[in-house]
Simulated scan of single mutants.
Amino acid sequence: MTMYIILINWTEQGIKNVRESPKRLDAAKKALGDMGGSFKDFYLTMGDYDMVAVCEAPDDAVAARFCLTLGQAGNVRTRTLKAFPEKAYRELIGTLG
Rank of each mutant, 00 (worst) to 15 (best):
K40H: 10
R77H: 10
G74R: 12
M1G: 02
S21E: 00
A53N: 01
L68H: 15
N9P: 09
A31E: 00
Y89I: 14
F84L: 11
Y43G: 14
R77L: 05
L25R: 08
N17Q: 07
M1F: 08
L70M: 14
L70V: 10
M1E: 04
D41P: 06
D41L: 09
D50P: 08
G74M: 14
D26G: 12
L81F: 08
S21Q: 05
F66M: 00
E56K: 12
F66G: 00
R90A: 06
D59A: 06
A31P: 01
L32Q: 01
N9C: 14
D50M: 11
A57D: 07
M1K: 07
L81I: 06
T11D: 04
T78P: 01
D26K: 12
S21K: 00
A57G: 01
G36C: 02
G74H: 13
D60T: 06
A27M: 07
Q13R: 07
D41C: 04
V52M: 12
A73Y: 13
M51C: 07
A27W: 07
D34H: 09
E12S: 09
G36I: 02
K40E: 10
M46Q: 11
G33W: 10
I15M: 12
M35H: 07
A61S: 06
T45G: 08
E86F: 06
Y43W: 14
L96W: 03
F42V: 02
K29G: 03
V76D: 05
K82F: 02
R79L: 04
M3Q: 15
A53L: 00
G14M: 07
V62D: 00
K23N: 06
R65E: 10
I15Q: 14
A83T: 04
A63Y: 10
K82N: 12
G74I: 09
A88C: 07
K40C: 01
A83S: 00
V52P: 04
A83P: 00
T69I: 00
P85N: 14
Q72G: 08
G14I: 11
V76S: 04
R77T: 10
D60L: 05
L81E: 08
A57W: 06
G14S: 10
L70T: 13
R77I: 10
K16I: 02
K29P: 03
D48W: 15
Y49L: 11
E56R: 11
D34V: 01
A63S: 03
Y89W: 12
R77D: 02
Y49R: 13
K29E: 11
A88R: 04
P85A: 07
C67A: 09
F39R: 00
A31N: 02
Y43E: 10
G97N: 06
I5Q: 10
D26A: 13
Y89M: 10
L25S: 14
T78S: 05
K40P: 05
M51S: 07
Y89E: 05
K87W: 07
L81V: 01
A64H: 04
V52W: 13
K87R: 11
A61P: 00
R79T: 08
